[in-house]
C-alpha cells in the first residue's frame, strides 16, 4: 500500500523521481492543507476507499495508518 500511495504523491507533484518515505510530511512537499485534501481525494479514487479527515494527516504514514484502521 505504501508504494501505491507514494506513486499517487509523485503523480500529484508531477515528479516521478520524488523520494518518499512514511515520514515524508506534506508540508515538506510544499503542499498546503487544501492541496493535502486534494491528494487524499486522489488516493480515495485510485484505491477505491474513503478516508476520514477528522484526525491529523500530516505525513504519508498518517495516511496509511488511517487507511489501515478503516479498511
Amino acid at each position: 500500500m505504501f508504494e501505491e500511495i507514494a506513486q499517487i504523491v509523485r503523480e500529484y507533484k508531477g515528479n516521478d523521481s520524488l523520494v518518499i518515505a512514511p515520514e515524508t510530511t506534506f508540508s515538506s512537499l510544499n503542499l498546503d492543507s487544501l492541496e493535502t485534501v486534494e491528494l487524499v481525494m486522489k488516493v480515495e479514487e485510485t484505491l477505491g476507499v474513503s478516508i476520514d479527515m477528522n484526525g491529523e494527516i500530516n505525513c504519508v504514514g498518517d495516511l496509511m495508518a488511517v487507511l489501515e484502521k478503516t479498511h
Binding site: S33, L34, V37, M41, M53, N54
Partner: peptide
Amino acid sequence: MDGKRVFKYAVS
C-alpha cells in the same frame, strides 16, 4: 464548519 469535509463534499 468542518472545512475539509465541506471542501470534499463540494468538489465531488
